[in-house]
């Protein structure tokens, strides 16, 4: 009997892997371990055995039954998986066919490069405690010139080729320095703010000259502010912009609204000051104009120059952006051409 049991088990083992579907499996299961199955039949014959043999056979038969149940369960799961996978195989999609390789028109989306650089600058100043201001593009003479210590006859007005409106009183702001005046109207010292924005100059357009471009103005007013404070601050700023510890130098520069006034240069990053085509062989690159706020400007803004002083600076955002991305022609910035914008995509 025991031998017979082992034979049935052997047959079971050899057949189970060839069961291929769930209905077949149900049949197979009934054949072996069903109420009328072969195992039950054998167990029915136990009556004729001695007590001793009954014990041995019973234990073994139970063991075989458990093994069979487990094997059927395992095989059933496998059959189910195969069936699902077969279905998946049938419904297979081409996952290489992404939007990126499909001609569906424009796929890219993203910010304008000037927006990216301006935001970076704004965030940098914000982290240093500066307010961010905005102001009108169409200005009056007072905010663009007079209040900045540039009276009507001042030759500095010639330095900036101004777009005038026909009333000869209003103009397109030639610099973001109007924000110094507008900022003083809304802030009490001590204060510090920057203001990025569009400015306009009546210049003939070419690859490096635009009539509409962008500047960032900054002003910090407090007590006992010195030129070394300004140098420290601007060096920190430029080092952060260029992600590199920079060397800077000041040289005299003339802007009527600051005194002393400076041009700030930084040591050329490309050649380390030895001279190359980027720095026009001088080893230094002009970065921005800056200086200590002229007492007349402070006074005009209702601030007592004997109590407070400070510094102001202005930098060109377009040039910074062009340097960052190596943009060859400033006119692309306002072109509205998506072939240009696409290159600065977020995705």
């Amino acid at each position: 009997m025991l031998q017979k049991l082992e034979e049935v088990k052997k047959e079971f083992d050899s057949e189970i892997d060839s069961v291929a579907s769930m209905p077949d499996m149900a049949q197979f299961k009934a054949d072996y371990i069903g109420k009328k199955g072969r195992l039950s039949a054998l167990m029915g014959g136990m009556r004729d055995l001695s007590v001793e043999d009954k014990k041995t056979f019973g234990a073994r038969a139970n063991e075989v039954k458990q093994e069979m149940i487990a094997a059927v369960e395992k095989r059933s799961q496998a059959i189910e998986l195969e069936a699902i996978n077969a279905k998946l195989e049938k419904n297979r999609q081409d996952i290489s066919w992404t939007d990126r390789i499909t001609d569906k028109g424009q796929q890219a989306a993203g910010l304008h490069p000037l927006t990216k650089v301006t935001r970076e600058l704004e965030d940098l100043f914000l982290s240093m405690g500066f307010d961010i201001l905005d102001g009108p593009h169409i200005e009056d003479e007072y905010h663009n010139f007079e209040a900045l210590n540039i009276p009507e006859s001042h030759p500095a007005r010639d330095m900036q080729d101004t777009f005038w409106f026909k009333d000869k009183k209003h103009l397109l702001r030639t610099h973001t320095s109007n924000l110094q005046i507008r900022g003083m109207e809304t802030h009490k010292p001590p204060f510090k703010f920057v203001g990025p924005g569009k400015v306009f100059r009546c210049e003939t357009l070419d690859a490096s000259h635009e009539a509409a471009f962008h500047q960032l103005e900054g002003m910090m007013v407090g007590r006992d502010i010195s030129v070394p404070h300004m140098i420290h601050f601007l060096r920190t700023l430029l080092s952060e912009i260029f992600k590199s510890e920079l060397k800077v130098r000041l040289r005299p520069g003339f802007f009527p609204f600051v005194e002393p006034g400076f041009e700030l240069d930084y040591e050329c990053l490309l050649c380390g000051g030895k001279g190359c085509s980027v720095c026009k062989q001088v080893g230094w690159v002009e970065a921005l104009g800056c200086g200590m706020v002229h007492p007349n400007v402070l006074r005009g803004g209702g601030i007592d120059p004997n109590e407070f002083n400070g510094f102001a600076f202005g930098l060109g955002i377009d040039r910074l952006t062009m340097m960052r991305y190596r943009i060859d022609d400033v006119r692309h910035l306002h072109s509205g051409n998506l072939q240009f914008s696409e290159q600065f995509r977020t995705y």
């Binding site: 989306a109 993203g110 304008h112 927006t115 509409a212 306002h334 051409n337 998506l338 914008s341 696409e342």
Partner: peptide
């Protein structure tokens, strides 16, 4: 950019 899938431009 993220919802509109658009490119930003500056025009004159």
């Amino acid at each position: 950019v993220l919802r509109g899938r658009a490119l930003e431009i500056y025009s004159y």
